[in-house]
Nucleic acid binder design. Structure first.
Length: 571
RNA sequence: CGGGAUGUAGCGUAGCCUGGUAGCGCGCAUCGUUCGGGACGAUGAGGUCGCCAGUUCGAAUCUGGCCAUCCCGACCA
């Protein structure tokens, strides 16, 4: 491609509303342009990169026998009502105003409607289907460029199996394909255990790229044996040891003490582990004649409650109690709540494993400005349940190997789910087995965010000059820079044609009246791995300069050896 | 959805407090000089100052409403 004909609006200055390197550089290198919040136009250079990622994904999906489809983005409301996801997704779904249609945020339902009349016998299974298609999600807060957009490209795949053993096989195939895809895309990635959220199902795995621009938080062990999304991460519980002093519990006055930090200050202590932190959660009633359920959680003062773990334990959505509810339920405001003397009897108490049978604890008295000391959970709190409900912290140890845990931010580039029968049940996707008995098809679902791969790659591969492409997803292999007219232009044209003959993707900066420095800076910004610089300085000795973008290393080669050297460097 | 900020030429911004000719840098056009790390000089084009209403002789500037964008949080395959 000749740069004189290529539309690539590079920018010298940083756009004012971009903060992360990938966002800044994708705009500055002319890859994308924002149309409105969370919606981007893909410009030629960006599209070339996205297409290369698509090609890798397509090849790896086809390699495991996955069939490519292309489903519509529009989809009837009715279909989504059948699985209950019109409500479950809520505001995240874009709705068409003048038709009962939605813009699909994912495609389980639509694929299932194809499966239903066609996968009817055990002989039809298993099947794996996928598409690479535009998804629409009405994100409340789009951010960080293409990392969280309202319109984006996803590879979504679905497996249909006879039973759970079959699902395990399909899931494993997808997992292996994912590892190949991300490796070929040049990402430094890792996989983590994950929560499945509104997708349903039990087991799920996320593929993560560590980056400050990421929105997920992960716990990673130093010995490399453990990595998990913080939502489901567990650590070795350092039990708060019993002292067995058997002191009676005692109420004491704590004026204006509202938080654990203030309580520690008031008591002049540093170790907050015996200051049991209480929080009240509510499960809203499902029907009119039911009552709300309340849960009081206890964790060590320096820990936090992990609400997603709590939801998993309870098997339902929870919410934090409103301030006016708290008084009603406990008798006190947040800050003076504890496990003893609760006003309402209908409260389930769940304590973290670290507090198992602990004594000499201090917690709220359920009377404003009072706390209780010498609480012995074993002695004083009946019907207490111990569960792992805390958020894993930096320097915690892993459960199995006691390796130190690090907390980091990460970009989720892929997510695979063992869905099970959630959709086949609600949509009636069944087959007849060998014995002529009706069975539910067991499904899996597998997603990759295309643009996120590109953004994650740039997050991991950039410097103060720009992007540093490498490997298969580089938009071009070589950036040929011609520095003058006359003989230099002729030589450059020759090199350009030779490279094209060798099928080497080359971007040729043949622009006239553009000064050298401008071309060099554009080249570093766009970040093609190899630069060939043709200028008078070396051409007078029949030499051509090759610059390696990543290392800034410069290699001088004889004109006649250039193509061979380039072929060698690309390999 | 809650909190905060911003909106002035294609991009980055000053001016707003204290109302009176809309300014600068980059980019763009023409000419000349320059020509291996975002050149220099000269001339020039480009603006409903986010939108609507109000106050005023007069509003980019003051007031109110709306819209948009960004940041923090909530939410979130």
């Amino acid at each position: 491609m000749r740069l004189s004909k290529f539309f690539i609006p590079t920018l010298k200055e940083n756009p004012s509303d971009a903060f992360f390197p990938s966002h800044i550089l994708m705009i500055r290198a002319g890859m994308i342009k924002q149309l409105t919040a969370g919606v981007y136009s893909y410009l030629p250079l960006g599209l070339i990169v996205f297409r290369k990622i698509e090609k890798i994904i397509r090849e790896e999906m086809n390699a495991i026998g996955c069939n490519e489809f292309l489903l519509p983005a529009l989809s009837p409301n009715e279909l989504w009502e059948q699985t209950g996801r019109l409500d479950a997704f809520g505001d995240i779904i874009f709705r068409i105003k003048n038709r009962d249609l939605i813009l699909a945020p994912t495609h389980e339902e639509v694929f299932a409607t194809i499966a239903k009349p066609n996968l009817v016998s055990y002989k039809d299974l298993p099947q794996m289907w996928y598409q690479i298609q535009t998804k629409f999600r009405n994100e409340a807060r789009p951010k960080s460029g293409v990392l969280r957009a309202r319109q984006f490209t996803m590879k979504d795949a679905y497996s249909f199996d006879l039973d759970y053993n079959g699902l395990d096989v399909s899931y494993k195939l997808q997992e292996q394909a994912y590892r190949k895809i991300f490796t070929r895309c040049g990402l430094k990635f890792f996989s983590v255990e994950a929560a499945s959220g509104t997708m349903g199902g039990n087991e799920s795995m996320e593929f993560m790229v560590e980056s400050d621009a990421g929105e997920d938080i992960v716990a990673i062990s130093e010995d490399g044996t453990y990595a998990s999304n913080i939502e489901v991460a567990t650590a070795y519980p350092e039990i708060v040891e019993r002292k067995n002093t058997n002191l009676p519990y005692e109420k004491f006055h704590t004026p204006n003490v509202k938080s654990i930090a203030e309580l520690a200050d008031f008591l002049k202590i540093k170790d907050k582990s015996r200051l049991a932190k209480s929080r009240v959660f509510v499960i809203d009633k499902q029907k009119e004649n039911q009552e709300n359920e309340y849960i009081l959680t206890l964790v060590c003062g320096d820990d936090e409650v992990n609400e997603s773990k709590l939801e998993a334990i309870l098997g339902t959505k929870i919410r934090q109690g409103h301030p006016d509810e708290l008084i009603e339920i406990t008798g006190a405001d947040a800050g003076s709540i504890g496990p003893i003397g609760l006003k309402s009897k209908n409260i389930k108490i769940i304590a973290d494993l670290k507090l198992k049978d602990s004594d000499e604890l201090i917690s709220g008295a359920n009377i404003n400005d009072y706390h209780i000391k010498n609480i012995d959970l074993k002695r004083d709190v009946k019907d207490i349940i111990y569960k792992d409900i805390r958020v894993v912290k930096e320097n915690d140890l892993t459960l199995k190997t006691k390796s130190r845990i690090r907390i980091s931010k990460a970009i989720e580039v892929g997510h695979i789910f063992k869905l099970g029968t959630k959709y086949s049940e609600s949509l009636g996707v069944k087959y007849l087995d060998k014995d002529g008995k009706e069975q539910l098809i067991v499904m899996g679902s597998y997603g990759i965010g295309l643009e996120r791969i590109a953004a994650a790659f740039i997050e991991q591969n950039n410097d103060d000059k720009g992007i540093i492409w490498e490997g298969e997803i580089a938009p071009f292999k070589v950036h040929l820079i011609s520095l003058e007219q006359g003989i230099i232009s002729e030589t450059s044209d020759l090199i350009y044609n030779n490279l094209k003959e060798k099928n080497i993707d080359v971007l040729y900066d043949d622009r006239k009246d553009v000064r050298a420095g401008f071309k060099f800076n554009d080249a570093d910004l766009i970040g093609i791995p190899l630069q060939i610089i043709v200028g008078e300085k070396f051409l007078k000795d029949k030499k051509i300069e090759i610059k390696i973008r990543r290392t800034n290393e410069r290699i001088l080669v004889n004109y006649d050896d250039l193509i061979n050297k380039i072929v060698e460097l690309i390999r």
